[in-house]
């Protein structure tokens, strides 16, 4: 009885790391720009396909190809920002949230259907020579690629944390999260900070997607589910805290995998949503708008 629980716990933690890294991307974008980009899951999906095709067509190892995926996503992020989101900077916050929500929702629909037409609805995943390797620890199996993905997620988030804490640009981002008007008066070009945050968020989504395509599988319709998951993790983790968001991702991953163990796989998708609705009803105040400090 205990062994399968431990096994599910391990799977939950490993997938939770990917929830964390994807949600940090969303949280960064929302915290800085107040853009609620509900096409985040579709951006993740695109990152997944980028990794998949790099491997399938050009035989680029998925982990080696990660920087390429990030680069592609950076380019995409800049294009999407300039094309769709830059014009909304001037709106008051309520309008900004609503309009970005609507644009993101249209964008998600377009990306999903473009992917569907280009690449069909098939589930895809990367199978490398080492995909089946497993690390066994006291009877619990840790698939190698998932462990590697988790470690990469952790390292990337740690680096991001250091960037935000230590560098001038990082501090400018944190200042903008708190009070963009005061930040402007520090000679910070808020428009540039917005662009940077949006691009970072897109890159993190893409990276998460590429990692999903290695240890799990991807398909064009995965976007909505991932958007919801990242939204929920963002709300649970609280804005402005990278590690808090990462931990929230792991909690959700564990909750999902234990639920599917006890209640059956069909219910794993609901855990996150029910958790979110409970938070919404029981503790609505603060979570979303929570600021640093």
């Amino acid at each position: 009885m205990l062994a399968p629980i431990a096994q599910n716990l391990a799977f939950g933690i490993l997938v939770g790391g990917l929830y964390g890294i994807a949600a940090v991307g969303l949280s960064l974008v929302f915290g800085v720009t107040r853009f609620l980009n509900v096409s985040h899951g579709e951006l993740l999906m695109l990152g997944g396909y980028a990794g998949f095709w790099l491997y399938t067509l050009y035989h680029v190892d998925p982990f080696v190809g990660l920087p390429i995926v990030v680069l592609l996503m950076v380019v995409l992020g800049v294009i999407l920002y300039k094309l769709l989101f830059a014009g909304m900077v001037k709106y008051p916050e309520e309008t900004k949230v609503k309009n970005t929500l609507l644009v993101g929702f249209g964008l998600g629909l377009v990306l999903q259907n473009v992917a569907l037409r280009l690449w069909t609805a098939d589930d895809r995943g990367i199978t490398t020579t080492y995909s089946s390797q497993v690390i066994s620890l006291v009877g619990v199996r840790f698939p190698l690629v998932r462990v590697a993905s988790f470690v990469i997620a952790l390292v990337v988030l740690f680096a991001l944390h250091q960037f935000l804490q230590r560098t001038y640009t990082g501090k400018a981002i944190r200042a903008t999260v708190q009070d963009w008007e005061a930040a402007t008066l520090m000679a910070i070009d808020v428009q540039k900070v917005y662009l940077l945050a949006f691009v970072l968020g897109t890159a993190l989504a893409g990276m998460a997607g590429a990692l999903v395509s290695v240890g799990y599988s991807i398909q064009p319709n995965m976007g909505l589910e991932w958007t919801l998951i990242t939204l929920i993790v963002m709300v649970l983790g609280g804005l402005g805290s990278i590690m808090g968001t990462f931990v929230a991702g792991i909690i959700l991953g564990v909750a999902q995998s234990l639920t599917s163990f006890w209640l059956g796989g069909a219910y794993r998708d609901i855990v996150a949503l029910v958790l979110f609705l409970l938070v919404l009803i029981l503790r609505p105040q603060g979570l979303f708008g929570a600021k640093e400090g």
């Binding site: 001038y168 501090k171 400018a172 944190r174 200042a175 999260v177 708190q178 009070d179 008007e181 005061a182 930040a183 520090m186 910070i188 402005g240 600021k291 640093e292 400090g293």
Partner: peptide, 14 residues
């Protein structure tokens, strides 16, 4: 309107 989540030093640096 200081940045309450940042340290005094970080505020000055900004």
């Amino acid at each position: 309107r200081v940045f309450t989540g940042l340290t005094v030093m970080e505020n000055l640096e900004l």
